[in-house]
Design a protein around this nucleic acid. Structure first.
Length: 322
DNA sequence: TTGTGTTTTATTGCCTCC
DNA sequence: GGAGGCAATAAAACACAA
């Protein structure tokens, strides 16, 4: 493709006549915009600059204020047109103002701006194009920042809820065990006793490791015995049965002592390690807190495992820990 | 002064629209 | 098919630390 960008800058597309026209028109327009002394607009030493032959910096428009050398300077400028030149602060300021009003230019407006600023229409177009690109990048950064803030908020809320959940869980564990001890004191049976009495393999299916222990093989008379008093307050519903970490797919099985025990054998892998650790810690702390629980009383399937729990209502209740 | 990173200006190639 | 927009990129200009 023919380079569209080569429309100006020393090429034949921008002859001396056009340069004169742009320059005179620019001074005229900018004089009305920035006052009669528009030299400040056209440049100071800090404005559009390019390195001359001697290496020094020079403002392009400064040169036009020196009438004696005007033609020479102009010629020098355009002979160096292949070099990039930055726009002056005032030019940029003016363009920014226009961009604020409309970020896309009509062809007529583009030509008008070019005349007013003493630039090529193509330069105006390029400036707007680059400006749109910068604006878009900024917008993306802004949106990213907003999304990140929202994510952080959600994460923070989630962590808070998680802690709350753990606290409640520990609380329930403690209350549960107190009830357990109390029951034992009253001569009532625990799940462990039930197992001993039934003298049979007890398969415990845990729909939810905490709230849904199903004693499928426990004799019904014994289960009935266990459905008593005010244990309903410790019912499973305390727990978040909708928790994505504990679904009905989870279950565990334990076969009588001596057999290979698998406790809370998960079929899912979505239980995060943190959650597991917290869960274990909570149970351990509960166990330590309530040192009254004796291993012999529970059908632990390995020497370092302990069972905490009791059946309640239609559903059992209990958990294992190491 | 020089090396290096950033910003700005400009080019290129592709795409869409009229 | 030409004009113009956009994304990607080159390259000059600039800023700044060492």
């Amino acid at each position: 493709m023919m380079a569209r960008g080569m429309l100006y800058g020393g090429g034949s597309n921008f002859d001396q006549k056009q340069r004169d026209m742009y320059f005179s028109t620019a001074k005229e327009h900018l004089g009305s915009l920035f006052g009669p002394d528009c030299s400040s607009f056209f440049g100071s030493s800090s404005m559009v600059s390019f390195r001359g032959v001697n290496g020094g910096k020079r403002s392009f428009f400064d040169s036009f204020d020196q009438e004696d050398n005007e033609a020479d300077e102009l010629g020098e400028y355009f002979h160096q047109a292949e070099k990039k030149r930055r726009l002056t602060d005032n030019q940029v300021q003016f363009l920014e103002k226009c961009f604020g009003e409309e970020n896309k230019l009509e062809p007529e407006r583009k030509v008008q701006l070019a005349k007013e600023l003493g630039l090529q229409p193509r330069q105006i177009a390029i400036w707007f194009q680059n400006r749109r690109a910068r604006w878009k990048t900024k917008q993306l950064e802004k949106e990213y920042e907003e999304l990140r803030n929202r994510y952080d908020d959600l994460k923070s809320n989630y962590n808070t809820l998680l802690k709350e959940k753990e606290n409640l869980r520990v609380e329930v564990f403690q209350l549960t065990d107190k009830l357990l001890v109390k029951e034992k004191g009253n001569g009532q049976l625990t799940l462990c006793d039930i197992q001993k009495q039934s003298n049979a393999s007890v398969e415990v299916t845990v729909a939810d490791p905490i709230s849904r222990v199903e004693l499928s093989n426990v004799p019904s008379r014994i289960l009935k015995q266990q459905k008593q008093e005010d244990l309903s307050s410790a019912k499973s519903d305390v727990f978040d049965s909708e928790s994505p970490h504990y679904t009905d797919k989870r279950h565990s099985t334990f076969i009588d002592q001596g057999d290979s025990a698998r406790v809370f054998e998960t079929e899912q892998s979505d239980l995060s390690q943190d959650d597991d650790e917290n869960f274990g810690k909570a149970m351990l702390s509960t166990a330590n807190l309530l040192g009254k629980v004796e291993d012999d009383d529970y059908p632990a399937t390995s020497s370092n495992m302990h069972y905490f729990g009791f059946p309640s209502d239609d559903q059992g209740f209990g958990f294992w820990t190491y």
